[in-house]
């Protein structure tokens, strides 16, 4: 089967700093893939390259076998396949538009009758536990948790086959982060999607992802299936990351 996302020999420099250094990876369809790294490791740059928000100096990104292009036609095609969930979902909703307007934009993009889009939206809102009344509100009038769900609902409305979540647990308390992670897992299973999770949280990635890559200073230092990578890390940096992670020790 064709890979959902494949990256070959991606290189990128910002002035003196090397953001991506010969990164190659393949994300199989229908799996959950983790991109792990600390700040400055290049994991966010990698995500932006996949989304087409960042051009590479060298190397290729293919989405479902199609090479990534920056033309408008390609962007329109890609939007139906690949949707991001940004780190601060509240900030990914345009502050001066009602949520109904934002959802309506999807109908225009998909060239779909508004009624059909709203019908699908009703199902999605229901599944995400959002009240219908939320559509008449502005993003600043809803809670952070709701904004997160609205952003996810909007991404799902595009019927993508690949979801990319950037630091989904950043800024969330442990008592609520699981809610979002469980939701993402459910969606992935139900829709048989490919889920890419970018995170610095090793414990979360270990549990949610089948395969992962560990990034450091623009390099992919280790990649493979999560179970064996966490059990017997081959790279020294992966070992350091794992040993630095605070443990709940019970003597």
């Amino acid at each position: 089967m064709m890979d959902a996302i494949s990256i070959s020999k991606a290189r990128l420099r910002f002035g003196q700093t090397i953001a991506l250094d010969d990164v190659s990876l393949a994300i199989p369809q229908g799996t959950c893939f983790g991109i792990v790294g600390e700040s400055g490791s290049g994991k966010t740059t990698l995500m932006r390259a996949i989304l087409g928000l960042q051009k590479l100096d060298q190397g290729d990104v293919c989405i479902l076998g199609m090479p990534l292009s920056h033309s408008r036609a390609a962007l329109k095609k890609r939007a139906r396949v690949l949707q991001p969930i940004f780190q601060d979902p509240a900030a990914s909703l345009s502050p001066r538009s009602r949520i109904r307007t934002l959802m309506g934009e999807v109908a225009t993009v998909l060239n779909e009758p508004l009624a059909v889009t709203y019908e699908r939206l009703g199902v999605i809102l229901n599944r995400l536990g959002l009240p219908k009344g939320i559509l008449d509100k502005y993003p600043h009038e809803i809670s952070g948790g709701q904004a997160r769900r609205v952003a996810i609902a909007r991404a799902l409305l595009m019927k993508p086959s690949i979801l990319i979540a950037d630091e989904p647990t950043a800024g969330l308390d442990v008592s609520v982060q699981g809610d979002l992670l469980n939701l993402l897992q459910d969606i992935r299973q139900l829709e048989n999607m490919t889920l890419v999770v970018i995170s610095h949280n090793l414990a979360v990635v270990r549990l949610i992802a089948e395969n992962a890559v560990v990034m450091r200073a623009g390099k992919a230092v280790e990649s493979g299936d999560v179970a064996s990578m966490f059990q017997s890390p081959r790279d020294a940096y992966t070992r350091e990351l794992l040993s630095a992670w605070p443990r709940l020790r019970v003597e």
Binding site: V174, S175, V176, Q177, G178, D179, L181, N182, Q185, Q189, N201, L202, A203, V204, R206, L207, I208, A209, E210, V226, A227, F230, L242, W245, R247, L248
Partner: peptide
């Protein structure tokens, strides 16, 4: 709290996070 040494279950539905 998600423990770093928690193993991923083969059956995907078992990998739940507590809330």
């Amino acid at each position: 709290e998600v423990a770093i040494d928690r193993q991923r279950a083969v059956n995907v539905t078992e990998n739940r996070f507590t809330v």
